[in-house]
Design a protein around this nucleic acid. Structure first.
Length: 534
RNA sequence: GGUCGGUUCGUCUAACGGUUAGGACACAAGAUUUUCAUUCUUGUAAUAGGAGUUCGAUUCUCCUACCGACUACCA
């Protein structure tokens, strides 16, 4: 039987990184089994619909490289999924709002077979009952006991029920939880579980007010119709698993009931509770894959993509948050994750997100990029005035030099700006520390030394490979040889030069800088430094 | 409150019932280096508590504590 799994988000806002992880695990599972990964939009809550959220979900998945085999629409030409029902695509449509007419008959079928009933209690009446129970330190639940005294088709005469259905539109259809049973369940991650039906409540399955099903009904009906074989979802659904088991049983679909796997939650890096939107703002990291602008408030939430994370790094860190391969390998591409993944190795407990590790993952992928790839990413970050003044080769070699100093490509400019322009100011403390009379006169001597000698510097004939093989050695030997012969302290005059080259005394190596900026610029920067510090 | 789930270094995690409880991130120290960073080496650091089963428990059972989810005509 073909494996068919689904990711079924609700378009009520931007997709959370925990949601992306759920999608990822579903995707990996499907691909490993040679099956299908389906994207279904659960938009049965008309109240909470947020415009743009659906596109955001699609774009997030596309960014991560998680392509649904079946689902809605398309994004930037990246998805080419049929969303119209056809012979080739019998499971469409994939948006629950477009499947609206489907659900009521299933709810009615349950009533006909005695597994559900009409309920006419108003929302106000029920919330009043809840409030009263709370005041008495009790909990009101609509269940096998209380249903006997409430307004529903179990207590009202048939003709009145009929009349209410026809004349009012605030009624619901509720599932009739069987009394005194034990539901035995199995979870692929957690194993066996049991729940007493008497602790469950009669959930609403369908609402006359908007003619829409609730999650529970739509979910079971669609998973059945779409022939889903495994349901991999967040642990917040665990408490409704008994209801879902009972629904499958009531429909007579036990034979084809999917297997379930509940993923633990992503927790806050500090303190308590699950990771929420606010944590990102507070702790300085994104909670969402992509930047999101709230259409109502204009409030902006940052995204991993915009913060400079590579999708490979994001996917990798998400995969390892709550799952491990059982080996010591930590770096996985999406392709490598497919054969390695297994639900058996998914962790039961909640995983706390850690920003440092996230950065480390990005660093690893940064280092794996070619100089040419990095150069292409770097160019747009250059200031407008100089953006087109440097060759691809120059940028590529610069990237090769600096990539081990960065976690993100967006740090490149800060690290390497001295290779593009002379400093406009010198750090005061460094000036005090390193511009001693001795150091200045030594720098003057080195200016002369550099002027009188020749050595290789960057040209477009070079490649990053021959840069690595030591083009700077000549410069290095020239300088250090001279300094050592003079018995000067290396850490003194070198830092004076660095100050003249970069404006401070931290960062790139002296010979690397000279190699890139060339002899003339080198002499000019030393001259300028000597002249301005007197 | 009730129901369900969970608990190994600060964090992510590994460990057929038998290990000096392993790795990674972070942190610290040392080495290399002209500075910073990289790199290399080393180190600090954990089985929530209590019973029980067992020759032997991180692992199985129970109790307690703590954490979390759910408790809507939301998903």
């Amino acid at each position: 039987m073909e494996t068919r799994v689904r990711f079924a988000p609700s378009p009520t806002g931007p997709l959370h990184m925990g949601g992306v992880r759920t999608a990822l695990y579903n995707y990996l599972y499907a691909k490993q089994k040679g099956g299908k990964f389906i994207l279904r939009i659960e938009d049965t809550d008309s109240q909470r619909f947020v415009p743009g959220a659906e596109d955001y979900i699609l774009e997030s998945l596309a960014w991560c490289g998680i392509m649904p085999d079946e689902g809605i629409a398309e994004v930037d030409g990246k998805f080419t999924i049929a969303s119209e029902k056809s012979e080739k695509n019998p499971h469409a449509p994939y948006r629950q709002s477009e499947r609206k007419p489907l659900y009521r008959q299933y709810a009615e079928q349950l009533i006909a077979n005695g597994y559900a009933y009409y309920a006419f209690d108003s929302a106000e009446e029920l919330s009043k009952l809840r409030a009263e129970a709370e005041a008495a330190k009790q909990t009101f639940i609509y269940n096998y006991e209380s249903r006997k005294t409430l307004k529903n088709s179990l207590t009202l005469p048939a003709d009145e029920v009929k009349k209410l259905i026809e004349t009012t539109d605030t009624w619901t259809i509720r599932f009739k939880i069987p009394e005194g049973q034990t539901v035995k369940m199995n979870d692929l991650i957690r194993g066996e579980m049991e729940v007493e039906t008497n602790t469950l409540d009669d959930k609403v399955l369908w609402k006359a007010a908007d003619q829409l099903p609730t999650y529970h009904l739509a979910n079971i009906v669609d998973d059945h119709l779409m022939e889903i074989t495994e349901v991999i979802r967040g642990a917040e659904w665990l408490p409704s698993l008994p209801l879902h088991y009972l629904l499958y049983k009531a429909f007579g679909w036990e034979d084809t009931m999917p297997r379930f796997a509940h993923l633990s939650l992503l927790l806050k890096p500090d303190g308590k509770g699950k990771l929420s939107k606010r944590d990102g703002d507070r702790l300085g990291f994104p909670v969402f894959p992509l930047k999101w602008t709230n259409p109502e408030t204009g409030e902006i939430s940052r995204g991993y993509r915009e913060d400079g994370y590579y999708p490979e790094a994001f996917v990798n860190l998400l995969a390892l948050l709550g799952w491990n391969p059982g080996t010591e390998q930590e770096l996985f591409t999406l392709e490598e994750l497919i054969p390695a993944f297994s639900l058996e190795r998914v962790i039961k407990s909640g995983a706390r997100f850690n920003v440092d590790k996230a950065k480390w993952f990005n660093e690893q992928y940064l280092r794996r990029r070619t100089p040419q790839q990095l150069a292409a990413e770097f160019r747009p970050m250059l200031p407008d005035e100089i953006r087109d003044k440097f060759s691809d080769k120059y940028l590529a070699e610069v990237c090769e030099l600096i990539k081990e100093r960065a976690h993100f490509a967006n740090e490149f400019w800060d690290i390497s700006k001295a290779l593009f322009a002379a400093p406009t100011a010198y750090d005061e403390n460094d000036v005090k520390k390193f511009c001693t009379p001795d150091n200045l006169s030594h720098a003057e001597e080195l200016h002369k030394l550099i002027a009188e000698n020749s050595f290789p510097t960057f040209t477009d004939e070079d490649t990053p490979e021959n840069y690595k093989s030591g083009c700077c050695e000549k410069i290095e030997e020239l300088l250090t040889g001279y300094i050592k012969a003079k018995e000067w302290k290396m850490g003194q005059v070198m830092n004076t030069l660095r100050l003249f080259f970069t404006g401070n005394t931290r960062g790139l190596g002296i010979s690397d800088i000279i190699y890139f900026i060339g002899k003339d610029e080198t002499l000019s920067r030393i001259r300028k430094g000597l002249d301005s510090i007197k």
